[in-house]
Design a protein around this nucleic acid. Structure first.
Lengths: 187, 187
DNA sequence: CACGGCTGGCTAATGGACTTAGCTTTTAGT
DNA sequence: ACTAAAAGCTAAGTCCATTAGCCAGCCGTG
């Protein structure tokens, strides 16, 4: 009987793919095992259980989202950087709704939690974007929270089909970038 | 054997309470039945299943949130109305994290879905707030989506413990209201 | 007041999911 | 080649959601 050659990263990656296909929170250990060509209990050699798997998927999603935003921001500043960051984040979430959705409602268990580290990877480039505007230092945290809330909220609502009218969503998104840019410049 | 005297509304209300206590998506039919002093299968006389229960909880949450925001906005205009709406929404979500969390990622099944009706109850007063600003009509939908995204994102992140530094969250929230108000006035 | 039907409860049973325990075989290092 | 850890497996336990089918309490009619 040949070995499947799995490791934790492979299991988590497959779980993340599965979440993107069937929706956040929907994948079961059984589905994942079948996809990996392995029996369900074998998964427990690589992850501690469903809870652990989900935490790892969420951390992966955060880290990937952070990388996408970071890359998009490289070499840009001001409105350009803001728009690039926003679009990169939205694109990531729309392309990976399941794994990103796994992050929702999950509390980091402490500053050492990989999930918290992933969050920081997202926040870092956003902070860099804000540095391109002339904000009083005390406002930086507030603005950062605003950006995160706005991007997170928009992407989450969009990927859940939460915007009802026919008005073009892309258009709303560009409007939103403009709105934030103007607000930050006049701050 | 005396009757428990349940009906659909009572079951949904108890489910919503339970969600607030143990977290969105966590309540089981078994827990709910025990709390209602009834055996699990009896719940199916009032609710079609777990999926149906969650949809009803979500619809209830939306409707309640809409009512809270609507009441808060009554008799106010401009910045006042915006601030009242924002605070009412945030307060509702913080006080009822489980039932509000149940709405996340749930797609309305059509315009007749009570969940969609609940969403409209939230959007209505927000639209009224926007009417207090001088926006071009084409911007109204965009602004509405922005408000919804921002409030939803902020409240969701907050109630999941997603804001990491020690900077006061209330302060960020007030800053955010101010930011939006300024942006809408200069629109 | 009797009574018949609906309604809301119950028990029993099925199927599926997560998880643990314990065994076996591959594989990597000496 | 030999050993030991790692990675698979089967078997089994628990819990949950759901369906089927039964029975008793309530309501309205005669």
């Amino acid at each position: 009987m040949p070995r499947a050659g799995l490791d934790t990263a492979a299991v988590v990656a497959a779980g993340a793919d599965l979440a993107d296909e069937v929706g956040a929170g929907r994948p079961t250990m059984a589905m994942l095992a079948e996809r990996l060509g392995v029996r369900t209990p074998s998964l427990y050699k690589h992850v501690a259980g469903q809870e652990d798997l989900n935490r790892r998927i969420a951390a992966l999603a955060m880290s990937e989202a952070g990388e996408a935003v970071g890359t998009a921001v490289q070499g840009r500043a001001g409105r350009d950087a803001l728009a690039a960051a926003a679009r990169a984040f939205r694109t990531y979430v729309v392309d990976h709704p399941g794994r990103y959705g796994t992050t929702i409602g999950m509390e980091p268990a402490g500053p050492e939690d990989p999930l918290a580290a992933g969050s920081r990877r997202v926040l870092e480039p956003l902070l860099a974007v804000l540095r391109g505007y002339d904000l009083p230092e005390t406002d930086e945290t507030h603005a950062l929270r605003m950006l995160r809330s706005l991007f997170h909220g928009f992407a989450t609502l969009e990927s859940a089909g939460g915007f009802q009218w026919s008005t073009d969503i892309d258009e709303s998104f560009e409007w939103l970038i403009d709105f934030v840019d103007r607000g930050l410049r006049s701050g």
